[in-house]
Design a binder for these strands. Structure first.
Lengths: 236, 236
DNA sequence: TGATCTTTTGTACGATAGTACAAATAACAT
DNA sequence: ATGTTATTTGTACTATCGTACAAAAGATCA
């Protein structure tokens, strides 16, 4: 006979574990952690709820595995791009390359995982907003090294800017990046259709351009609040 | 006996409704909508779960009321500040004043409500990330006018920048603003204690400075992608 | 004071949550 | 084919969810 489904394509789903991971990633990224039930995930993956328990033990374990899956590749990609960026001769071009090294992997995945890194980055944004404990721990111990490397690289390109300012500005970058992935439709809406918020390439270019300019802004010398500013009572 | 609690201060809580609103605001802003139960809110407010149902009917109704409470005052404040900003003579100063008019009310409340607008803005950030339906509807129909007015004002200050770019950059501003309120501790951590992420005044100054620079960045002419950029394969 | 209205409390109900676990099934080495 | 392991299914348990509702308590005013 020709070919019994011997080796691979035996079951309906070739790899249920992957299907569950992908479904969970998508659902978590768009609805948050608590709004999504294990049953929702199972259904989206065409699996049985018990199967989720089998593969990942708990719902937290599933989230943990999603992070484990992506963190390595994405940070590796960032390191590579950052190393390449630091070799750029022209100072202006170098800063742009550094920013790009930070932004691009967040949009275009750090591995061959289906759907790209945009989905995972969006998931990180949502978990961050929800104050998810599992995510917080992983984030701090996995991304801080990368963030520091990025901040240092920017600082080397802009030695006259205090490190504090660079930290703030790179924080703004991450916030802008997250928000672009969380509510892209707002860009389309506010631009009255002239721009497409879910166009990753456009988002990257806009983000890089804006961020480079922000980094290059004059330092904020907190020693001299000399110049009077428009009065806007600070109640805090 | 001295004084029976005759008129006002009869009940232990002078205004339970307000206490519930405040507690819900705080809990939603830090944990998200779905992670917080009505019982959590009631307990934090020193109330009975049934009391929440009595005052707000449903959990969605409670969230709705929080928005109703803040949206008016905050947008009013923004309008006032924006109007004042548009009267600033110097062009550079005007742009800064416009940005400040957008940022400041988000941090310092649009009313006398305890805790300030920072908490409400953080709540908006979290709801946005969670894709909350109730919030999405209100946001679109309540804040879009303000956003358009802001974008128009910036555009008038920078006529040579395409409106599309302004939209993107103001979107980044909102993302940065949100993120600063959601995870201020990250700033403290990455700056190794040199900066305090929860210092609202510092956040405002940094954000305004960076955003003004971003707005002033050269336009992104999508007609000419002439100049070669560092190669970073776009998988999307 | 007593009648009426507002607010708070206590309890309960149905739905759904996460997860445990035994039985059923598929995959595979021998 | 058979025994063994890996995976999937089905079901069930307990906890908690949002919310309804009647009774208690408090406030208001004739």
């Amino acid at each position: 006979m020709v070919r019994k489904p011997t080796s691979k394509e035996a079951a309906r789903k070739p790899n249920m574990r992957e299907a569950i991971l992908a479904a969970a990633e998508e659902l978590f990224a768009t609805n948050g952690f608590n709004a999504v039930s294990v049953r929702d995930i199972a259904q989206a993956a065409g699996a049985n709820p018990g199967s989720v328990t089998y593969h990942f033990k708990t719902k937290d374990g599933l989230l943990l595995e999603i992070y484990r899956r992506h963190c390595g590749p994405m940070n590796l990609r960032r390191s590579e791009l950052l190393a390449a960026a630091k070799r750029v001769r022209d100072l202006k071009d170098r800063l742009e390359a550094i920013v790009r090294a930070y932004v691009v992997p967040a949009f275009t995945s750090g591995s061959d995982l289906a759907g790209g890194g945009a989905r995972f980055t969006r998931l990180r944004a949502v978990m961050s907003a929800e104050g998810n404990e599992v995510a917080r721990k992983i984030i701090a111990q996995t991304f801080d090294d990368t963030s520091h490397a990025f901040i240092d690289a920017v600082h080397e390109s802009l030695p006259h800017i205090p490190r504090t300012d660079i930290v703030w500005r790179s924080h703004f970058l991450l916030g802008a990046l997250y928000y672009s992935l969380v509510t892209p439709e707002r860009v389309s809406r506010l631009s009255r259709g002239e721009a497409d918020g879910s166009d990753a390439a456009a988002a990257i270019e806009q983000l890089v351009q804006a961020t480079v300019a922000a980094f290059q802004a004059p330092a904020l010398d907190q020693a001299a609040p000399a110049r009077r500013r428009p009065v806007v009572g600070s109640k805090t």
